[in-house]
C-alpha cells in the first residue's frame, strides 16, 4: 500500500501537484484523484514495473481497494 501511494503521489507530482495525498481504500482514481486516461495509463505502467501485474488487464478498476485486490496486497 505504501509503495502504491508512492507511485500515485509521484504521478501527481509529475503533473505539478506537489502536495501528497493520503489514500484510503475508498479513494476513487478518477473522481477523487482526478486521474484522466493518460494518468491511468501511467499508473498501470509504474504499478506493473513494481508489482508485475497489469491492473487494467481484464476489466477496469475504480478505487484504491480495487487496485489492491487486483495486486493481492
Amino acid at each position: 500500500m505504501e509503495k502504491l501511494a508512492q507511485i500515485i503521489n509521484k504521478i501527481r507530482a509529475n503533473k505539478g501537484n506537489a502536495e501528497p495525498v493520503a489514500l484510503t481504500p475508498q479513494t476513487r482514481l478518477r473522481e477523487d484523484l482526478a486521474f484522466d486516461s493518460f494518468d491511468l495509463a501511467e499508473l498501470t505502467v509504474h504499478v506493473e514495473d513494481a508489482f508485475g501485474k497489469d491492473i487494467f488487464e481484464d476489466g477496469v478498476v475504480d478505487t484504491i481497494a480495487d487496485v489492491c485486490k487486483r495486486l493481492g496486497i
Binding site: 486516461s37 495509463a41 487494467f56
Partner: peptide, 10 residues
C-alpha cells in the same frame, strides 16, 4: 510506444 491496457499504447 509500449502496449497499454488503458490507452492502447503509452
Amino acid at each position: 510506444g509500449k502496449a497499454n491496457s488503458v490507452l492502447g499504447n503509452i
